[in-house]
């Protein structure tokens, strides 16, 4: 087995910040413990794959798919906005973006 990586509550807080998940502070230790166990188990991938093994990102040998640029039907503004939590003047309305408070 590979060495269990150490994950601190500060690490979890940082990951949560990157992932835009506002975790309650009391949950950080719990996640730290679980992530360390899982990472310890999955770290065994480093035992087997040698440098000369190419990486595979996808199961199919894919190439880019192109199509003609033609005009075709799409969702109406009303349909596209139908699931939005907040709408104003045919647009998605969002909270303030700039840090001007």
């Amino acid at each position: 087995m590979s060495e269990t990586p150490s994950i601190t509550r500060e690490d979890v807080a940082h990951l949560a910040k990157l992932a835009r998940i506002d975790l309650p502070p009391e949950s950080l230790d719990h996640y730290a413990e679980q992530l360390a166990v899982i990472l310890g188990a999955v770290a065994q991938v480093s035992e087997v794959a040698a440098d000369d093994v190419p990486a595979t990102s996808h199961p199919l040998p894919l190439v880019n798919v192109f199509r003609e640029d033609v005009v075709r039907g799409s969702l109406t503004a009303e349909e596209a906005l139908s699931g939005a939590p907040s709408v104003e003047s045919d647009r998605f309305r969002v909270p303030r973006i700039l840090d001007e408070a």
Binding site: A16, L18, A19, I21, Y31, L39, V45, A49, P54
Partner: peptide
């Protein structure tokens, strides 16, 4: 849990050791 695992595996300094290696195992 999985979003944070993925965020970790893709973050700078860990990408090669985790995600990159996993892709090799896929091969």
């Amino acid at each position: 849990r999985r979003i944070m695992l993925g965020t970790y595996a893709l973050s700078a300094g860990y990408y090669d050791a985790y995600y990159g290696q996993a892709q090799k195992v896929r091969t």
